[in-house]
Nucleic acid binder design. Structure first.
Lengths: 346, 346
DNA sequence: TTGTACGCGTTATCAA
DNA sequence: TTGATAACGCGTACAA
């Protein structure tokens, strides 16, 4: 037979090949491979030698089929290209690796039906558990699979219509702290430049902003639904060009923060003298910008890590049966754009 | 028996359950599920109804075991938290999804032995193919698995010691173009601030820089091995504080670019009047910085997409047998930090 | 058109 | 201690 190209696994060495070569039964070879103690030392050495020589590696698929666990988990994110998510994904991958699990990555692009399909595919692939950043809306398949016994951990946002473990960030408190800081600087007209209003994180941050204003007995002044740098820029211009404009801005995500900075620049205003600014969500360049940018930092790596650990707690039977909710604190990184003096913070 | 918690797949519905419930043979149920035409219409309807009611979904693991292809590919990157890689990963995931394949994500942290281990694990999981951003050094396992028939595509950098398909970026030409642009602006002392010198991409970019200087009959002036913003800052300070300092900088990656900007700022110099700067590698804020930052953009999404498509070409038996090399062009995004007038480019 | 028997590569059961 | 045999869930070959 000619040496044709055969797609697929190639002619991999199987346990049978090892057994044949070593002159033992398949089961004995299996025992050696799995390091079971009940095997004659000399024979173990002989089999091990054959394993080495033939380059045998167990077929994980067959193992999973038999063993009823795939040692694989699924991750469905809304957008891996978002640096925040990428950091989460990296942390999750690390935890999965520590636990001997592979990680299947899926990107729903924040689309519910795509997410739905992915959940189905992952279930078909027999993943042992699922980590996801839920898209907005109720995911029927997710609910069904969870009910059927699939462990699910939602992170960054809770899943709608399904009670799952969740690991979140203190969006409200972080936003409140940032707003309070601006108020502490003496600002009385503090505006909120926010993302799409039905996003979970956007809502929470708006709540925090409102809480701070209310506590200080000030009037809220917000604009919402800016979901790009351009829209953030437009929204900010609208605020600043209105009569009696704000003297401080809280930009509720990275896009609106950048848009706000551009708008301020375009209008010939200066940060922080004319308009003070605080953002939400970290970015590499925050301390390279001038003035250095003050923001609320989210613990991205820890978010991913804790989410993954929560899932493995479930898989390994630890913890209470009812769904857990973990909320991680944010950190206000005070630099200069809020009006604080230079040199206090990197 | 009590309804205890059983980790694992739960009691999933199998084809047998469907067959039993519908009163047909397993094979008939299988036919209906796979949409084979040779089946009685009425019976097909009955089986489909049972499938629906029981919520049956085929076990992809068993399918793979039988079919000798897992419909899974592996991706090993050196650092997913790098925004550039995250964009690549997103593109790859999209292509995998289009081809009905799942994507297992591994992060080698640029460590050769970690990469080696991952390649082994992926092979054990019977991935149909492998995409990787090779760490520096020769990976024995990679070579072995490729020889055993595993299709491999390296991207962003070629793999050392193994002949594989590769999809790369025009590092040298991009760097040359950027340097030429600075020379065109009239600079005669153009310095190179570079990454770790044995990195493939760093070497290529240095080559391009040198080519441009040589063509203009100028003296090269480079500093290397800066692998963080801080080191880039230090290196740049060293260059600018020396006698007869450069009037232009080519920063060969994003970290050295940011470091250079900080150094310039700290020394009280202005961009581009005192020092012109061009960077390599795109970042979100490049057009938010003032002056707007000129850089060489790498086609991250296309890099990932083409790499994945190259792999599927192999899997689907298209293309020539010998290893292919594809090199994608970069794009010089001219803004202001190079000395060009404002308003020419976004 | 439908069903039976077998195999994919592994682990589990039980007897030798 | 070792090995024959039966699963795991599905698809293929062949027969009915």
């Amino acid at each position: 037979m000619p040496d044709t190209f055969t797609p697929g696994f190639g002619n991999r060495i199987t346990l049978r090949d090892v057994a044949l070569e070593a002159g033992v039964s398949i089961k004995t070879a299996s025992r050696v491979v799995n390091g079971e103690p009940t095997v004659n030392a000399a024979m173990a050495v002989r089999v091990a030698e054959v394993v080495e020589r033939l380059g045998y590696r167990p077929n994980e698929l067959a193992r999973s089929l038999k063993g009823r666990r795939s040692r694989t988990i699924g991750l469905v994110v809304d957008d891996v290209s978002n640096p925040f998510m990428a950091v989460c994904a990296q942390a999750i991958e690390g935890v999965a690796q520590e636990h001997g699990h592979a990680l299947i990555l899926c990107d729903s692009h924040a689309d519910l039906s795509t997410e739905d399909a992915y959940v189905g595919l992952l279930a078909q692939r027999q993943v042992d558990g699922l980590l996801l950043v839920p898209a907005r809306g109720r995911n029927g398949r997710l609910k069904a699979e969870q009910r059927a016994g699939l462990p699910v951990v939602a992170f960054d946002r809770p899943a709608e219509g399904v009670r799952t473990d969740s690991v979140l960030v203190e969006n409200r408190a972080g936003a409140r702290e940032a707003t309070e800081h601006l108020i502490w600087h003496g600002h009385e007209r503090v505006a909120f430049v926010g993302d799409v209003r039905h996003y979970y994180t956007a809502r929470k941050r708006l709540d925090g902003y409102k809480q701070a204003l209310k506590a200080a007995d000030l009037e809220p002044l917000h604009t919402l639904d800016a979901h790009s740098i351009e829209q953030g820029e437009e929204a900010t211009k609208g605020l600043l060009e209105a009569p009696d404009p704000p003297t401080a801005l809280f930009a509720a995500n990275i896009l609106t923060a950048l848009g706000a900075l551009r708008a301020i620049e375009d209008l010939g205003l200066r940060v922080p003298d004319d308009v003070a600014v605080i953002g939400f969500d970290d970015f590499e360049l925050a301390h390279v910008l001038r003035p250095r940018f003050t923001l609320v930092r989210q613990p991205a790596a820890e978010l991913g890590r804790r989410a993954a650990e929560t899932l493995f707690d479930r898989l390994e039977g630890r913890g209470r049966p009812e769904p857990q909710r973990l909320v991680l604190p944010t950190e206000l990184i005070v630099r200069e754009s809020c009006g604080c003096a230079p040199g206090l913070s990197p």
